[in-house]
Amino acid sequence: MLLFLALPTLIAVGTGFVGADGGFTLDTVGALADPVVLSAFGSSIWLSALTAVIGAIVGALVCYALLGAPADGPLRSTIDSLSSVLAQFGGVMLAFAFVATIGIQGMITVLLRDSFGIDIYADGVWLYELPGLVLPYIYFQVPLMVITFMPALVSLKTTWAEANATLGGTARSYWLRIALPVLAPSFLGSLLLLFANAFSSYATAAALTSQGSQIVPLQIRSALTSETMLGRENLAGALALGMILVMAVVMVGYSVLQSRAARWQR
């Protein structure tokens, strides 16, 4: 536990401060201000935020649709398993799926081109660049939202809906005045979790793009594997430090929201 969690994290963060001569330095951390690195962090955050918001909204809709389906029924258990597979197992294989779908010879690309005369790559192939990551990321964000948000939605008590109805409330007042305020912390918490998930995910991007490194995890890859960046040996550590900082902010926010949400989930 200590050897494989605490030590690597400390090394990862620590090497960010160690210079080429082995002494303490802030130079490598200063590399975080490098325009390339900054733009990588920018695109990582942009990509994560965009896919988190879309994933959260679509995922919440799916959860809503599943509300009222028996928890032990075939519908719920099938969707639960599918979601877990896509959210945790996909990675590399999702990249293949999207190459087959909207790759240059992908099913949808060819269909749109031959049947409708629409060339989605008229302005060049974007699947292997940053915009191409959006669709695959959404593809694993939505299932993750279903997994994390469903418990919150299920914990809405039917007695609240009944109380609302007996007091003369409408479905509208139920959702606006009761359900949404109760769900808000869980929703925002799940949104943050989705952000963290996209921010730290590596496999899909690595399998999809083998050239260039537009997002931070790919920057770490090139910093780790490249042998051409002399004098920047510890860049990976500095990048890791930057990622941990972003993750720390997100996770603190998440735990605050989660403790608020827990109040209603007993």
Binding site: P8, S200, I220, L224, M247
Partner: peptide, 12 residues
């Protein structure tokens, strides 16, 4: 909360 990609940097 610690991304695998960060863990790798230290695990190496």
């Amino acid at each position: 909360s610690i991304p695998a990609i960060v863990l790798v940097v230290g695990l190496a």
